[in-house]
C-alpha cells in the first residue's frame, strides 16, 4: 500500500517535471495545436450543418434545426441513391482491380539482377505518380480522342471504324480504372519492394536446397513474407472504396457518362458550392466520411480475426 502511494507520488512528480521541462516544446507546438483545432476540428463541429436547413447569412446558431430530414431526403431521392451507387461501384472496381498490380510489379522487379535495368525500370514506373490528375486526364483525352487519338488511329487502321471510348459508360469505366493502374502501380510497389528487401536470404537458400524452383520460391517464400505488408495496405486502402477521388473523376468526366461518373465528392461540390445547398451536401459528406470510417474498421476487424490463420 505504502509503496504504491509512493509510486503514485513519484509518477506525479515526474509528470510535473515533464510539464515544466516541456514548456519550451509546448510553445513550439502552439502553432500546430492551433492548426489542428481550427482547420481539422472546427470543421467537425461544422458538421452540425448536416442537421440544419443551413444558410450562410444565419450561421450555425441562426439556422433552423431539421433533425434527420436531410438524410431522409438523401435516401429517398433516386438521383442521390444513384450517386451513392456510382461511388461504391467505381470505388470497389478501383480497389479490387488495382490492388494486385503493385504486388506483381514488386515481385518482378525483385527478380531482376541487372542493376541498370532495375534502376531504369524503377525510375520510369514511379514517374506517373507525380503527375496530377489534370495531366493524366488530359492524356486520356488526347489518346482516346475520336478524331486524332492514337487508339482510334490504330482501331481505324484495323477495322475502319472509330469508337467514342470516353463517351460510353463501360469503356469510360475501363479507362477510369486503367488510369488508376497506370498512375499508381509503380509507386505503390515501393512499399512491397521494401518488404521484399527485408526478407532473410537464408530462407531462399533453404528453399533452393529443398529443390524449390525460382517460381516456387516466389510463391512459398516471397509472398508469405510480404503478407503482413499486403494486409496493412488492404486495411489502409479499404477506406478509399467510399471516397473516390474528386480530382480523378473531375478530370476524366464527360457529359454522356455522368450517369455512372457522378460520385459523392463531385456531387457535393456541384450541389454544395455551386448551388449553395449547404445542409444537404454536408449530410452527404458526413454519410461518406462515416462509410469510409466503418469500412476501415470492418476490414481491420476481419484482418485481426484471421490473424493466426494467415501467417
Amino acid at each position: 500500500m505504502k509503496q504504491k502511494s509512493q509510486q503514485a507520488i513519484a509518477v506525479r512528480a515526474k509528470n510535473k517535471h515533464n510539464f515544466k521541462r516541456s514548456i519550451p516544446l509546448l510553445i513550439m507546438f502552439l502553432p500546430v495545436i492551433l492548426y489542428y483545432a481550427i482547420f481539422k476540428f472546427e470543421p467537425m463541429i461544422g458538421l452540425i450543418m448536416a442537421f440544419q436547413n443551413f444558410s450562410l447569412k444565419k450561421g450555425f446558431f441562426g439556422s433552423e434545426f431539421v433533425g434527420l430530414t436531410n438524410f431522409q431526403y438523401i435516401f429517398e431521392t433516386p438521383i442521390m441513391l444513384q450517386v451513392i451507387k456510382n461511388t461504391l461501384v467505381l470505388g470497389i472496381l478501383n480497389f479490387v482491380i488495382t490492388f494486385p498490380f503493385p504486388i506483381l510489379m514488386a515481385l518482378f522487379i525483385n527478380e531482376v539482377r541487372t542493376m541498370w535495368f532495375k534502376k531504369t525500370v524503377q525510375t520510369i514506373v514511379y514517374l506517373p505518380h507525380f503527375l496530377s490528375w489534370v495531366i493524366v486526364g488530359s492524356m486520356c483525352f488526347t489518346i482516346f480522342s475520336q478524331e486524332s487519338g492514337v487508339v482510334n488511329n490504330i482501331l481505324k487502321a484495323i477495322t475502319g471504324e472509330t469508337y467514342p471510348f470516353l463517351y460510353k459508360p463501360v469503356s469510360w469505366t475501363a479507362i477510369f480504372v486503367g488510369s488508376s493502374i497506370w498512375k499508381e502501380t509503380g509507386f505503390a510497389a515501393i512499399i512491397y519492394l521494401a518488404a521484399l528487401g527485408g526478407i532473410d536470404p537464408t530462407l531462399y537458400e533453404a528453399a533452393s536446397l529443398d529443390g524449390c524452383s525460382r517460381v516456387k520460391q516466389m510463391i512459398h517464400v516471397s509472398i508469405p513474407c510480404i503478407a503482413p505488408t499486403i494486409i496493412i495496405n488492404l486495411i489502409l486502402k479499404a477506406g478509399s472504396i467510399a471516397t473516390v477521388g474528386f480530382d480523378q473523376v473531375y478530370n476524366l468526366k464527360t457529359d454522356p457518362v455522368m450517369d455512372v461518373a457522378d460520385v459523392i465528392s463531385t456531387w457535393v461540390y456541384r450541389v454544395g458550392l455551386q448551388q449553395m445547398q449547404f445542409g444537404i451536401s454536408t449530410a452527404m459528406g458526413l454519410f461518406n466520411s462515416l462509410l469510409s470510417l466503418i469500412l476501415v474498421f470492418t476490414v481491420n476487424a476481419i484482418a485481426r480475426k484471421y490473424d493466426k490463420s494467415l501467417w
Binding site: 507546438f29 472546427e42 463541429i45 457535393v268 449547404f278 454536408t282 466520411s289
Partner: peptide
C-alpha cells in the same frame, strides 16, 4: 521527444484527423 507533456494525447487526436474529418463543405464555410 519522449518527455513531451501530453505527447500521447496529442498523437491520438492527430491520428484521429486522418480517419475522420469535416469534409468539403464545413471546411469551405470555415
Amino acid at each position: 521527444r519522449p518527455y513531451f507533456w501530453g505527447r500521447r494525447t496529442f498523437s491520438k487526436l492527430i491520428v484521429f484527423t486522418m480517419l475522420f474529418g469535416g469534409g468539403m463543405i464545413p471546411t469551405y464555410t470555415l
